[in-house]
């Protein structure tokens, strides 16, 4: 699979897929999509990148260890749940704000933050699995 074309295209393809995954993640609350799907898309992007160019460039590109990303995601999801406690509500009560930035109304909420957490966990855990397996391949 280490053809020149594949190796040349792979980084761009991967970045496009990651970008698309973020799009899928953010529109998930209203259209088909969400953290699980977005995370899987990003994870396959990184897996493909790893197959094409080796694991080292992928690790350099994402900078953090995949499991660090996953742990951050779990943390983010938990914090999103805990935030409602500050207002005296039950754990995981959704909080919403609708600030208007540059004439566009944004919907920011703890469920969204939670979904981003889910995304990070899925990306991190599955990329970690894929990269670890690909690394054995190289040895």
């Amino acid at each position: 699979m280490n053809t020149v074309i594949f190796r040349t295209v792979a980084p761009y393809l991967a970045s496009l897929m990651v970008l698309f995954s973020i799009f899928v993640l953010l529109r998930g609350h209203n259209e088909p999509g969400g953290g699980f799907i977005g995370g899987l898309i990003a994870a396959s992007a990184l897996a493909i990148y790893g197959i094409a160019c080796g694991v080292a460039p992928v690790r350099r590109a994402i900078y953090f260890h995949p499991l660090q990303i996953a742990a951050f995601g779990l943390f983010l999801a938990a914090v999103a749940g805990l935030m409602s406690l500050a207002g005296g509500n039950a754990f995981m009560t959704g909080l919403w704000v609708f600030p208007e930035i540059g004439g566009v109304e944004l919907a920011l909420s703890t469920p969204m933050m939670f979904d981003i957490g889910v995304y990070c966990v899925v990306v991190g855990a599955i990329t970690s699995i894929a990269l670890a397996l690909e690394e054995r391949e190289v040895e």
Partner: peptide
């Protein structure tokens, strides 16, 4: 505040 019911169930 979500129109994708599946996603709302999952995250909310």
């Amino acid at each position: 505040h979500g129109r994708n019911i599946v996603n709302v169930i999952i995250v909310d």
